[in-house]
Design a binder for these strands. Structure first.
Lengths: 197, 197
DNA sequence: ACACTTACTTACTAGTTGGTAAGTATTGCC
DNA sequence: GGCAATACTTACCAACTAGTAAGTAAGTGT
């Protein structure tokens, strides 16, 4: 009975290890700042092994964004997320960003790719647009439901507020990268102060 | 009388032309996505000519941020800025960001460098921190004065609100890059709605 | 007129980039 | 046992990267 044929959380296959490390390097150093050589050296394999799984860097980059989109769709459908009230759903979202902060002040995927956006392959650009769109839509619905039950207080449309909130959070992780964790905490504190009655 | 020895707006010297183009490429494609070859080709000179003016890319990058910091210090001291009321000073700031949007949706300097921050030379990192710090301080004072005269309405400290606003604006230009001008307009509209009575 | 400085070009280098082709060891399948 | 698929390694490659060294032409200062 070959135990290596099915996946466990403890023993990810090479394909996943590549994607995981690429994600870390992307969020910590930027898309144009890591190479197949970097990945290969740290994984103890040869660059050509990465080309075997992801023929081009375009393929790798696209797989990165596609996986994140898949994660989002799964996350927002999770019982422990759908079962929450609007205020707790917002907390769950904020926890994701705070988790990035805690992991060596990684920026979010959007913040990592926005600046270099025009140098990215078409498929990656398209996926990132969908990702940002779906996340914004989800938050807009949370905000809308929260205002109806007086869990949130804000002026303007839920869609505009959702866009503003997510944009601020992406930016807040970038500011934390440039300075330290403090500005992120200050910004999130300000957001909470304004949104929660 | 050699007219080439003093500068006019119409005939910038090579040193400045390099810096200008490097800035455009930085704000449009990212720091790790342009090379001396790109700059040289578009300027009609050889890469070595750029090394003459900026020996290393570190020097060039640092000069870019240093110039931006110089611009900020000059701008905030300009009579046509210091002479304005808080609401108009905010408008003047927003006009700068809208100008970026109008120029091919360029992100701001901070937004362009934050993601790749850890790959930047020390000097560049330090200058960017100072730049962001001084801009935030300036806006905090504007907000403080504006709230005192009822030109602005917000909760929390002026410093926190300033940090939040600038972070949102930097992010808004990135969102505009990924999608189109609409989200930027939506976000700025939301900010105005919340801030102005 | 001569030395010096400025602003380049030409020619080169070593290292890195993404990518390919061919070979190899291990595995499951009939 | 033979076969094909999987997951690699070895050995390349052309293009690009930042950067250097030496040469040159045109002013500038005295």
């Amino acid at each position: 009975m070959p135990s290596a044929t099915f996946q466990t959380a403890l023993a990810p296959d090479t394909r996943t290890r590549i994607l995981d490390l690429a994600e870390v390097l992307l969020l910590e150093r930027g898309y144009n700042a890591f190479s197949y050589h970097h990945l290969a050296r740290e994984l103890g394999i040869k660059p050509a092994a990465i080309h075997y799984h992801y023929p081009s860097k375009d393929d790798l980059g696209t797989a990165l964004v596609t996986r994140q989109l898949r994660r989002l769709r799964k996350w927002r459908g999770l019982p422990r997320v759908t079962g929450l009230g609007p205020a707790q759903q917002l907390d769950a979202l904020l926890a994701v960003y705070e988790n990035h902060l805690g992991h060596d002040r990684r920026v979010c995927l959007f913040g990592a790719l926005a600046a270099d956006f025009r140098t990215l392959p078409e498929a990656m650009q398209a996926e990132l647009r969908v990702f940002n769109h779906e996340l914004t839509e989800w938050l807009a619905e949370v905000l809308s439901a929260g205002r109806a039950t007086d869990a949130f207080r804000f002026v303007g449309s839920p869609a505009a507020k959702a866009l503003q909130l997510l944009t601020t959070l992406a930016g807040a992780l970038q500011v934390a990268r440039v300075h330290d964790e403090t500005p992120f905490q200050v910004i999130v504190g300000q957001l909470r102060l304004e949104l929660l009655p």
